[in-house]
Simulated assay, not measured.
Amino acid sequence: MADSARTTTPFDLGAYLDRIGWEGERRPDAATLRGVHLAHLRAIPFENLDALGGTAPSLDLADLMAKLVHGRRRGGYCYEHNTLFAAALEALGLRVTRLTARVVVGADRVEERPRTHMALLAEIPGDPRPYLADVGFGAIGSLLEPVPLTADTEFHDASRRHRLVHVPHRGPLEMWALEAHEARGGASEGGWVAQYAFTLEPFEQPDYEVINWHIATNPRSPFSRRPYVQRLTADGHLLLDGDRLTETRADGTVTERRPADETEARRMLAEDFGIDVPEGLTLLR
C-alpha cells in the first residue's frame, strides 16, 4: 500500500480482545501481558496464504484488523501478528520496541541467516525488566508467554521451556538467542535448541515493509513456495508444511498424515486450523 493511502484508523482494542477471547484485566502489568499473549496464540493461526498466492500481505493496521480480527477465518505470519500485537500492548499502556531476528534453527552460525523475523520487547511501567514477546514465530519452539530479558535462566511459559543466552558475534551490540527445550521421542529428556538470535536495536515500520515484501515475493523464500500453517491446540501443536500435517502433543509424541488431494487440504485448513482458503489459491503444488 502506498504511503499516501495508508490509514490512520485507531486500533480497536475492544474488538481485538474479543477476537482472542480475553476477558481478564486490561492493565499494563505482567499478568495481563502473559494472558493476552497466550490468548492471541490460541485464537489466531499462523499462515502464509497471501505470500503463497504471490502477494505481500499489508502491514497497515486497518488491514490487519480487517484480516486477523474482523475476518476471524484467517491468520497471518510474523510481521502481521507482531504488528497487531504491538498495537494491542501499546493500547494497554506498555512500551514496545520492535526488533528483528535471525532465525537460526538448523544453522551452524548466527551469521548464516538474514534478519527476517519480527519480535518485540515489551516494557511494563514500574517493572525494571523488559520482556521478550513474540506471537508470530511459526515454529513449535515459539514462546507461549513472554519471558524476562534475563540470560541463562530457564523459564516455563505455559507448557514449554525456554531460556535466553548471549551468543558471540561481530558487532557492537550484545546478541541474544532464544532457545527452546525440545523433548525427544516423547521422553522428558531432550536438549536446548536455538530458535532465533537478535540484538536490541529498534526497527521501524518501513524496515518491515521491505523485509515483508522480500519474504513474500522472493521465489526462493519458503513462504512463497508452499503452505506453512500452524495452530496452538489444547493438547499441543498442529503444523501443515507443504503436504504434511504434523501433530505434536504436549508429551512430545508426534503423528503425521497427508491430505489426499486439494479438496482434502482445503477441508483440513477449515476444520483443523479454522482458516478459509482464498478462492483460486492452489495449496498442493
Rank of each mutant, 00 (worst) to 15 (best):
G54A: 10
V104K: 01
R163W: 01
H169A: 14
R244V: 15
A88N: 01
H70F: 14
K67M: 00
E112P: 05
G75C: 08
L94V: 04
W213N: 13
F155S: 09
T55K: 12
T233L: 08
G126I: 14
D276S: 14
H169Q: 09
I211S: 02
Q205A: 15
T246I: 14
G191C: 02
R6N: 05
A88L: 04
P130C: 06
V69D: 03
T153Q: 10
A88P: 03
S188G: 14
A15R: 13
A122R: 05
R184H: 15
V147P: 12
A43T: 00
E174I: 05
I140D: 15
P28Y: 09
V104F: 00
Y228F: 14
T55M: 04
H81M: 00
V135S: 08
L61C: 04
H40I: 04
L17I: 07
R34K: 15
G186L: 12
R129D: 15
R257I: 00
I140C: 14
F46L: 10
F273G: 04
A133Q: 02
L49F: 03
T100V: 10
I124G: 12
L68I: 03
H181T: 11
I211G: 00
E201L: 10
A183K: 14
P128F: 11
T255N: 02
T263N: 07
E247I: 07
D261Q: 10
A62S: 11
R73F: 01
L143V: 13
Y208V: 12
E247Y: 00
V36N: 07
K67E: 00
K67W: 01
G106T: 00
P168T: 05
P278W: 10
R115P: 03
F137E: 14
E179Q: 15
E262K: 07
G190W: 07
P114W: 01
M175D: 01
H40S: 09
D251F: 06
G252W: 12
H37F: 04
R249F: 03
E25Q: 15
T83S: 15
F198T: 08
D108L: 09
W176K: 06
R225I: 08
A234P: 01
L178Y: 09
N212C: 13
R184I: 15
S221K: 11
W22E: 07
P130H: 10
L200D: 11
Y77C: 03
H156I: 11
R72H: 10
E174H: 06
L89R: 11
Y228A: 04
L143T: 12
L200M: 11
Y77R: 00
R72M: 03
P146A: 05
R72G: 00
D50N: 08
